[in-house]
């Protein structure tokens, strides 16, 4: 059987909210080392990967590997019935066709359980090589959210260029052009408010803003986001989920004809 217990439902609620519009369904692959997911959007332009490590759970048991096909919109409906502070337990028998979600309030005076019907989902897996990136930028996730939102009011695509001057986001559209540059900045006392630019070589890539905006739905998960860029490769936008693991969004760049 599979059983996983998290002390705060809020984490799972935020995770599902972050990915449900991008990927409508996907397989939760459970194994003794945790829960993972790899799902592409319908146009195969972006990919979401999720890794939740067994030791990040309050309790984790998985007797045999299972692939649980989940409709994220439906999972989201169920998770809306959980309080943020509820303890949440996920349970499934081996080869089950449903996933049980149990919510317990902090003082244990309210216990509810919901069964989610599982789906059979055929999904292609992509091999993502371990990569040394030309530029890795850590910045406040709220800053990332603001930049991609602001630029969306001007254009459809963004040129992201990392140089020793900083990371620059540029767009243009019918009403004009916009450039936003963030510099390496370790001045703020709080590490969460700092911007770290680790540059091996300058790199510039063009992306669709619509997807970068969608990734920002993960902002409530964590105060920092990491962007990894290499020429001719998808950008990786990574949000850490405390000690539990991380969610990564990969977006294919625009390519010249």
């Amino acid at each position: 059987m599979f059983e996983a217990r998290l002390p705060q439902a809020a984490v799972l609620k935020k995770l599902v909210e972050a990915l449900k519009e991008l990927v409508t369904e996907g397989n939760f692959d459970v194994s003794p080392s945790g829960i993972s997911l790899q799902a592409m959007d319908s146009s195969h332009v972006c990919l979401v990967t999720l890794q939740l490590n067994d030791d990040g759970f309050e309790h984790f048991r998985c007797d045999r590997n299972m692939s649980m096909g989940i409709h994220f919109g439906n999972l989201s409906k169920i998770l809306k019935c959980a309080g943020n502070e509820d303890t949440i337990t996920l349970k499934a028998e081996d080869n089950a066709d449903q996933l049980t979600l149990m919510f317990e309030s902090a003082n244990q005076d309210r216990i509810s359980d919901f069964d989610l019907k599982l789906m059979s989902i055929e999904s292609e897996h992509l091999g993502i090589p371990d990569q040394d990136y030309s530029a890795e930028v850590k910045m406040p996730s709220a800053e990332y959210q603001r930049i991609v939102r602001d630029l969306t009011s001007m254009g459809d695509t963004v040129l992201v260029s990392a140089t020793k001057e900083g990371i620059k986001f540029s767009t243009s559209g019918d009403i004009g052009t916009a450039n936003i540059t963030l510099r390496h900045n370790t001045t703020p006392e709080k590490e969460d408010e700092q911007t770290h630019i680790d540059l091996k070589e300058p790199v510039a890539l063009t992306f669709a803003l619509r997807y970068l905006n969608n990734f920002a739905k993960a902002t409530p998960l964590t105060p920092q986001v990491k962007l990894s860029l290499t020429k001719d490769l998808p950008v990786v936008v990574e949000y850490k989920v405390g000690e539990l693991g991380q969610v990564r969004f990969f977006l294919a760049p625009k390519i010249d004809d």
Binding site: E124, T157, T206, A208, L233, I255
Partner: peptide, 14 residues
């Protein structure tokens, strides 16, 4: 004008 790349252009399908 640049075209939107698909993930299969960059990663191997397993």
């Amino acid at each position: 004008k640049a075209n939107q790349g698909r993930l299969e252009n960059f990663f191997t399908v397993l």
